[in-house]
């Protein structure tokens, strides 16, 4: 049986991890490679690096980071942030990234999904969707949830699937940062509506929230940042509990 995946997400700026990280035994908490290595040793199934670098040096720094990670880590990882064209994706894939995640560039130019899927295969193309409730409707937002678009979330996700998305990373901006649990009602609707894997994101605060999201929505993976970075949830403990609750996980 396919395991449910646990995915820590690292925000990276200028090749360094941002947001506080509170690992013991870490020589350099800002070094994404060392963090990634630690997570892989703890049993993370996959990693997501979200690049928030805003300079024109972005691609070069990201390629260097991706190479360093690929050299040292033996689990898959996804790179997201600022991928606007085929050449960006090509550089990152050649550097060893397993998947690329596209968010606003796909909303602005949906045909980019078709082009990426055709060039690299659907398995490389993760579409990240930030959603927020607007007048009772789930609406796709840009810029970290600040800018609403015209797109209704479920419709956009179905369109992304039909264009060649291989996976959906769905972040509820209403839940993100609340530590009150994932948006299980929306995740269930989305997960039932598509035939590609769905990663839940936004709202993880306790082990029970991970149990809930897998039991109630049957999503393929759950992503979180701060609960892992601050050591509030340890991945081996989390996986042990998931297994005890009858949820298939990989125990390394």
């Amino acid at each position: 049986m396919l395991s449910k995946r646990i995915i820590p997400c690292l925000d990276v700026k200028d090749g360094r991890t941002v947001k506080g990280v509170n690992f013991v035994d870490l020589r350099d908490a800002g070094d994404p490679v060392e963090l990634a290595w630690n997570y892989s040793r703890q049993g993370a199934d996959e990693l997501v690096f979200l690049d928030i670098t805003a300079t024109h040096e972005r691609r070069k720094t990201m390629v260097e980071l991706v190479k360093s990670v690929a050299r040292q880590i033996s689990i898959p990882f996804t790179i997201g942030g600022g991928i606007n064209e085929i050449a960006d994706a090509d550089a990152l894939l050649n550097a060893g990234a397993d998947k690329i995640s596209i968010n606003s560039a796909a909303v602005r130019n949906p045909a980019l999904i078709d082009e990426l899927a055709k060039a690299f295969g659907v398995q490389f193309v993760v579409i990240a969707v930030d959603t927020r409730l607007n007048n009772g409707k789930n609406i796709v937002h840009l810029n970290g949830g600040r800018i609403p678009t015209e797109k209704e979330t479920l419709n956009w996700i179905k369109e992304a699937e039909s264009r060649g998305a291989g996976e959906i990373l769905l972040t509820s901006m209403d839940h993100d940062g609340t530590k009150a649990g994932f948006d299980n009602s929306l995740l269930k609707i989305v997960n039932d509506a598509v035939n590609i894997p769905v990663i839940a994101s936004g709202g993880a605060g306790s082990v029970e929230h991970f149990v809930d999201v897998f039991e109630r929505t049957n999503v393929d993976a759950a992503l979180a940042a701060s609960v892992f970075h601050y050591g509030e949830i340890l991945i081996p403990d989390l996986k042990g509990i998931l297994q005890n609750r009858g949820i298939e996980v990989r125990l390394s």
Partner: peptide, 15 residues
């Protein structure tokens, strides 16, 4: 063959 219980691509860790 894709279905909601068996999504395609088969992505992740399996036994």
């Amino acid at each position: 063959t894709a279905d909601p219980e068996h999504k395609v691509p088969h992505t992740g860790w399996n036994r």
